[in-house]
Design a protein around this nucleic acid. Structure first.
Length: 271
DNA sequence: CGAATCACCTGATCGC
DNA sequence: TGCGATCAGGTGATTC
């Protein structure tokens, strides 16, 4: 589910669901062996704590309390949902019980996600080395992207998916942004003019912002925290459309592998 | 050092 | 219907 727009959608949904007076009653860990093992101290530390904010950094969600923050990554299949009594499902790895007796469930069939603890005002290895937030025009600039592309031979798609270069862009939005910018995903990053990189910076920002407004993209089982599905998937121009007609020129879209991941592009519109 | 590949897991889908 | 192969929104380790 989870590139920046999906995580942001969940963040906003949880914020709305939980309100400003919420308190964590207790945390129930059923299966700690995710990609990163869930620290056993999590429950002790956060039990009884008031929730003071819900933030997003890159593709991470942070639930803040005075005793520390719950750090969550969704991997490929992670979800949070409101789970009323009786709604227990396979692959529910953690239940967060609120003081008002509601229960939030973290479910992640593939277990590529993570739950962790960040000390108050502390660091966390997963958050070190992250690049700028793309929606912050002060942070993510042409200057920055051009500098990170200089002399690099890797395909531009791999570069913009590199979380040290810019955060939040995954396999869907990389393809969508490159189509909108008219750049072939496999073009060596160092061989792109400044003018075209400037366009790419704009299109990355635009596509992410549009997707947030649309409530993210629903593929298989992504849902907003309130259970609604996003609808940005209806606006994909290339992702998942190999063999279909280009929305701009009508040519058949090409499918292949770029940066080790399935990729679709238009050989006519993208150069 | 950078770039490519593999590994981690489960589930859905597709072709036979 | 059943079964194996393939693919999937991410990231970190390993290899070349």
């Amino acid at each position: 589910m989870p590139e920046l727009p999906e995580v942001e959608t969940v963040r906003a949904g949880l914020e709305r669901l939980i309100g400003t007076e919420a308190r964590i009653a207790r945390i129930e860990l059923m299966r700690p062996d995710l990609r990163v093992r869930i620290p056993p101290s999590l429950g002790r530390r956060l039990a009884g704590q008031p929730i003071t904010g819900i933030r997003r950094r890159a593709k991470f969600l942070l639930i803040d309390t005075p005793a520390g923050s719950l750090l969550c990554h969704f991997g490929m299949t992670g979800t949070w949902r409101l789970a009323p009594p009786g709604d227990e499902r396979p692959h529910d790895h953690c239940y967060l019980h609120l003081a008002d007796h509601r229960r939030l469930a973290f479910r992640d069939p593939r277990r590529f996600g993570m739950l962790g603890l960040v000390e108050p005002h502390g660091r966390h290895p997963s958050l070190d080395g992250l690049g700028p937030e793309p929606l912050d025009a002060q942070q993510f600039t042409l200057e920055h992207l051009a500098q990170r592309c200089r002399r690099r031979k890797a395909p531009i798609k791999a570069v913009i998916m590199d979380q040290a270069v810019v955060v939040g862009v995954g396999n869907i939005y990389a393809q969508e942004a490159l189509f909108r910018a008219g750049i072939r995903p496999q073009r060596p990053a160092g061989a792109i003019t400044r003018a075209r990189l400037a366009r790419l910076v704009d299109e990355i920002r635009l596509v992410l912002a549009e997707a947030i407004v649309a409530g993210g993209s629903t593929i298989s089982d992504f849902r907003q925290a309130g259970g609604d599905s996003g609808y940005f998937q209806h606006r994909f121009r290339v992702y998942g459309r190999a063999g279909e007609a280009c929305v701009a020129c009508g040519a058949r879209l090409t499918g292949g592998v770029v940066g080790g991941r399935g990729t679709t592009w238009c050989r006519t519109c993208q150069r």
